[in-house]
Every structure is written in structure tokens, then in C-alpha cells.
């Protein structure tokens, strides 16, 4: 189809492209600046000479971080919680979404169980009661405190469930006639076609575990048990609390102040914490629109 391009259209499109590029730059600029600071020298940063590019390029900040035991320890805790937490989240999402995607005829108590789960998104026990429950189940200071209380994400279950319900019924009927059990139907027929929604939800789950800091702050009572983001939170936003809580850091503190600037090392640590996410989400981007159908419109 041939479209006649008018002058006003051309003007509009030029402005449109400029606006979009500016918006995109606005979104990535802070991270470019961060990266530049992390590779710059202490003096250049203090003199405010760093914007887009590193000034007096060096790797001192990264060298310092790699010698910083607490950063490595916290990173390891985050890696652990992610590697246990994400598969567990996914398993629970799949096992829960599938029965709930059934009709009332196929699964009699579907609506009872649906409401059982949905109710928890409408009403919460609250911060202190939840903390007490985690303490009473003996999870304080354990990595499971970062995994079990958040293991069931009802919103993600609903996303996957609604996706499963949108699939044509005939798909599994044929398998059922051939004598396949529900578990076989789920793994062989349903899951392979749920790829967009499972990829989206797995990304959310990964981002959740990688980014969580609040649970680490309230459930972990020693700094050496903090996951990465909690460590960053205390280290960068509230450094006094970090130094107050930490034991045996006086030598590290002295070294920290002498060798490198807090801004360059801070930037380097933040950048390392961002890196895994930056490496993952662009590859799953194509699934977002398809996989994100939250709820159904009649």
C-alpha cells in the first residue's frame, strides 16, 4: 500500500524520533554515568569531570571490590538464593497454575483454591506479624528466610493460569483419551506451549530474588549474612549502620578511605549488581507482550 508522505508527517516523525531517543537516553544515562564513574580516577570524580566517559581510566575500584570479602560473601548469598529460589518459584507456579486453570467440571474445588490464593493478594497480615511468623518457624538468619516466605507469588500464578486457560481445550483432550495422566499432560502438552509466559514469569522471579533487599535487612541479624542488595543498601545509603554493625572492619574501613573514593567503589559495586540483569532481560523482551496477559477480558 502506497502512503503519500506529507510535509507535516515528515516534521512530526522527525520530532517523534528525537523525543523517543531523548527518552531512551534519559533512561540509560544514569547507568552510563555510573559506569563511567566506576572506571574513573578518584580525583576526576571528586572534581566532577565525569559525565559519559571514564576520565583517567583505571580499574582500582574493581580491584578494591574483589578484595572486599563482604561484597563477595553477599554476592554468593544472592547467587544461592537465586539458584534455589527461582526454580522453586517456577515449580510452585506451574504446579499451582495448572490445577487452577481447570474448569469447575474438571476440578470441583477450583474456585475455593483460587480464592484461597487470591485472598492473600487482597489482605495481608502485616509487616510485624509476618516477621514473627518467620521467626517462629525458625528461619531467622537462615537463607530459607529469603526463599520460603516469598516462594508462592500469586500474581505470577495468575498470569500463568490465565495463559493456560487461553489454550484450546482440544490439545489436552486428545492426550487424555490416549490415557495420559494429568502430570504427563502438564509436562508434555501444556508446558511446551507456555514458553512466553513461563519465560516472562521466570525473569520476574529472577529479578525479584536478585533485587530483594528488605527481607535480608529484617530477617538477617548479622551483616555477614546479608544478600548483595541489602549489603549495598547499608553500605551506600546508610554507611554508619554498616560500620556500626560490622565486626572486625576497622582495618577494612581505614583501607577503604585511603585507597579509593567511596563514589567510585560504590559505582563499581552498583554496576556489578546491575550487570546480570542487563545481560538477561533483553533476550526475553520478545515474550513480554505475549506472556504478560494479566487477567482476562470477556
Amino acid at each position: 500500500m502506497a502512503i503519500k508522505v506529507s510535509t507535516s508527517r515528515k516534521v512530526f516523525m522527525t520530532f517523534n524520533v528525537i523525543i523517543l531517543v531523548l527518552l531512551a537516553v534519559l533512561c540509560v544515562f544514569p547507568f552510563v554515568n555510573l559506569l563511567a564513574i566506576s572506571f574513573s580516577s578518584r580525583d576526576a570524580v571528586i572534581a566532577n569531570r565525569v559525565t559519559f566517559w571514564p576520565v583517567e581510566f583505571n580499574l582500582n575500584s574493581y580491584r578494591f571490590i574483589l578484595s572486599n570479602n563482604q561484597f563477595i560473601r553477599s554476592l554468593w548469598i544472592t547467587v544461592q538464593r537465586t539458584f534455589i529460589g527461582v526454580p522453586l518459584n517456577m515449580l510452585l507456579i506451574i504446579l499451582t497454575a495448572y490445577p487452577l486453570s481447570k474448569s469447575k467440571k474438571e476440578f470441583r474445588f477450583r474456585s475455593f483454591f483460587s480464592w484461597f490464593f487470591v485472598f492473600t493478594t487482597l489482605f495481608h497480615g502485616g509487616l510485624v506479624p509476618t516477621w514473627m511468623m518467620v521467626r517462629n518457624t525458625g528461619l531467622l538468619n537462615s537463607i530459607w528466610a529469603l526463599i520460603l516466605p516469598s516462594a508462592v507469588n500469586v500474581f505470577n500464578i495468575l498470569v500463568v493460569m490465565n495463559y493456560m486457560r487461553s489454550l484450546p481445550k482440544e490439545m489436552e483432550e486428545a492426550a487424555l483419551i490416549d490415557g495420559a495422566g494429568p502430570l504427563q499432560v502438564l509436562t508434555k502438552i501444556i508446558l511446551p506451549v507456555c514458553k512466553p509466559t513461563l519465560a516472562t514469569v521466570a525473569l520476574f522471579s529472577f529479578v525479584f530474588h536478585w533485587n530483594s533487599w528488605f527481607d535480608g535487612m529484617i530477617y538477617m541479624q548479622r551483616v555477614d549474612l546479608y544478600p548483595l542488595q541489602t549489603y549495598l543498601q547499608t553500605m551506600i545509603i546508610n554507611p554508619e549502620a554498616f560500620f556500626r554493625n560490622a565486626t572486625n572492619t576497622s582495618a577494612a574501613v581505614a583501607q577503604f578511605v585511603r585507597l579509593v573514593d567511596a563514589r567510585t567503589t560504590g559505582a563499581a559495586q552498583l554496576f556489578l549488581a546491575i550487570l546480570p540483569i542487563m545481560c538477561v532481560y533483553p533476550f526475553l523482551q520478545k515474550y513480554f507482550a505475549k506472556g504478560l496477559v494479566m487477567g482476562s477480558v470477556k
Binding site: T96, T120, G125, P129, T130, M132, M133, L148, V154
Partner: peptide, 17 residues
Amino acid sequence: MLIPAFVLVLVYSYGPM
């Protein structure tokens, strides 16, 4: 299939109530 999620929600979402 529902048991694991049911138990976790019962403990960590309904328990605190």
C-alpha cells in the same frame, strides 16, 4: 499438585493474620 503452595501460603500468608 496444590499441596506445597497451599502449605506455604497457609503458613506465611494466613499464619501472620
